[in-house]
Simulated scan of single mutants.
Amino acid sequence: MINTSIQLFEHQNKKLSATQMTEQYLNEIIRGADTVCQAASAMPVQQDYARIEPGKVLCRKEDHMYFWLSMIFAIGFALIHYCSKYMSFLKETPRSKFLSISAGIAVAYVFVHLLPELNSFQEQLQTELEDSFWSFTEHHIYIIALIGLVLFYVLERMVKVSKRTDKLSDPNKAGSGVFWLHIASFFVYNSIIGYLLVREEYESPLGMLFYFLALGVHFITNDRSLRRDHQQIYDKYGRLLLTGAILLGWFIGIFTELNEIAVSLLNAFIAGGIVLNVLKEELPEERESSIGSFLLGAAGYTALLLLI
């Protein structure tokens, strides 16, 4: 009887010991998991929510928000181009005050937002190319911006020369060859802007909204210029191609990511194009542009940029 009691006591002790060991083991697992979670929470989290990682599931609420915002704004850009033929209320001469305000906004976007950003990109690029063949060039980013400006200047001159050619039946309309070259350039231009809508770095949703506002009004100005130069052929083909270019660029941006240097070069090219396209519309004397409206657009948009 005594032996049986002793055996039962020892058996209970063994069970208790096994239970304690199990609890201890589980507690160690829990403490280990807590340590991992604390370490993960202490790690710096990249706040670049505007970048949508290709091929990855969007798990954060911020990622979903930027994705849907970019899609809405891409559709907005596309609608601006598609509806361009119906914006007859925007007069060329005397120039509509809205177009002058739009030009001021676009210029402010370039000089207050884009150029300072390009300066930081230039510093990164200089470091990247320090030991390469291109290290002798000091201002790579600004050279790309200059190339963008020169390219669109050459296109404008080609359009003007084409209009003066006696062979054309309509002196106010550029030739079809020039039209397709012109549209091809703006197709690339729009595709880049659509891509940057997804891959540009935004500090907040307001940053993306201001990007949309600045380039949206810029597109309105571009559409008026292209319709003036190419008339019916632009309404038939041009506006549809530019509509598709925005959506194509956005779609590519969702699934493809370039490195920061490539994105900075695209931004520089766009900056040069914006400056030329704005100035060519505002400077000609016959347009009777409104300096007050231009200043209002530039000053107002600058104030908004400084507030965010």
Rank of each mutant, 00 (worst) to 15 (best):
M1H: 09
M1K: 10
I2L: 13
N3C: 15
L8K: 07
F9T: 13
Q12A: 09
Q12W: 05
N13V: 07
K14M: 00
Q20N: 09
Y25P: 06
L26C: 09
E28W: 12
I29L: 12
I29K: 09
I30A: 07
D34S: 04
T35Y: 12
C37I: 11
S41Q: 01
M43S: 02
V45T: 08
V45C: 05
L58A: 06
R60T: 07
R60H: 10
D63R: 04
M65G: 05
W68L: 09
H81M: 10
S88K: 13
S88V: 11
T93H: 08
R95P: 08
L99Y: 10
L99W: 14
A103N: 15
G104A: 14
I105D: 01
V107Y: 09
V107L: 13
A108F: 14
A108M: 14
Y109P: 06
L114S: 03
P116K: 14
E117W: 10
E117Y: 11
S120Q: 13
D131A: 10
D131Y: 08
D131C: 09
F136S: 04
E138A: 04
E138L: 07
I141Y: 01
I144R: 00
A145I: 00
L146G: 03
L151R: 00
L151N: 01
V154L: 06
V154M: 01
M158E: 07
M158W: 10
S162K: 03
R164A: 13
R164W: 14
S169K: 11
N172P: 07
K173P: 06
G175S: 14
S176Q: 13
F179N: 04
W180G: 04
L181I: 07
F187R: 04
I192R: 01
G194M: 03
G194F: 02
R199P: 00
E203C: 11
G216I: 00
V217I: 12
F219D: 08
R224G: 15
S225T: 15
R228E: 15
R228D: 15
H230F: 14
Q231P: 13
I233T: 06
K236F: 10
K236L: 10
I246C: 08
L248I: 06
I252F: 03
I254F: 02
T256L: 05
E257F: 01
E260L: 02
S264F: 00
A268Q: 02
G273K: 03
G273H: 00
I274Y: 02
V275H: 02
V275F: 03
N277Y: 04
L283W: 10
E288A: 14
S293W: 09
A299C: 14
L305K: 12
L306N: 15
